[in-house]
Amino acid sequence: MFNEHIFDYLRTDKLPHIWCPGCAHGIIVGSLVRSIEKLKIDKNKIAVLSGIGCSGRTPGYLDMNTLHTTHGRSLTFATGIKMAKPELTVIDVMGDGDAVAIGGNHFIHACRRNIDIKAIIFNNNIYGMTGGQYSPTTPTNYYASTAPYGNVETPFDIVKLAKGAGASFVARADAFHIGLLDNVIQKALSHKGFSVVEVMATCPTQFGRRNKMKEPYQMLDFVAERAISLKKWQEMSEEERKGKFPIGIFVDEQREEYVETYEKNVIERAKKGDR
């Protein structure tokens, strides 16, 4: 159902966006804005950050406190913002290159600290803006401009990575199953602690064209057909799981949040001279 209140959260004068026709990034941003609107979060109290690449342009369209940072390092800026002003809801939008290539180290450490930042990863399995080079999530044997003979690397499973590194909320959704996408983004926004939402996105221009899916619907099908609900996934055999991925919520735990813990365990003790 279309909700005109979402315009309150957009910088409509910055539209139309720069993304290619058929790109799924707009779908994810739409879901994010709907979720913020639904939760009635004060836009003055939201900071949205991004790294570099197509996803990096997201904050520019959002009427909030926005910061388009350096490639892969947005989580470090987000950490400083959250620590210095904990009352802000801090949302960090990253691409797959940002989150698990150049910024992989920041990502796992933010998970470990459980700092209250919402990390939304737009995973389109490719470096789109720079011309279709393979990323750490490009599936094996798929083509990219730097993998002209097919990708020989094994991709990261971002959900497993986040889970292993200690994030307290981890979910995966995709650009086709919008109900689930809205649901997990809202849960992530409401969760206290480091929240990871990996969204399987599409890039018809750079990924699709090189992999026989140049029409946007083909790319969306590619995502939709591989996305399996977690419940169903658990009933599938290893053979059936091949080439597919589970979607749903994988971790949802209440754990001590970093900034709160710092305030309680460090600032209070320091002020009392308790050392």
């Binding site: 470090t76 400083g80 913002i81 620590m83």
Partner: peptide
Amino acid sequence: PKVGGKFIQMEDEIGGIGAAIGASL
């Protein structure tokens, strides 16, 4: 922390200055 400020030891040097710039904002 004695003056209500915050310190963080980041995972690397790039993160250290990144966090400081974020806080400054």
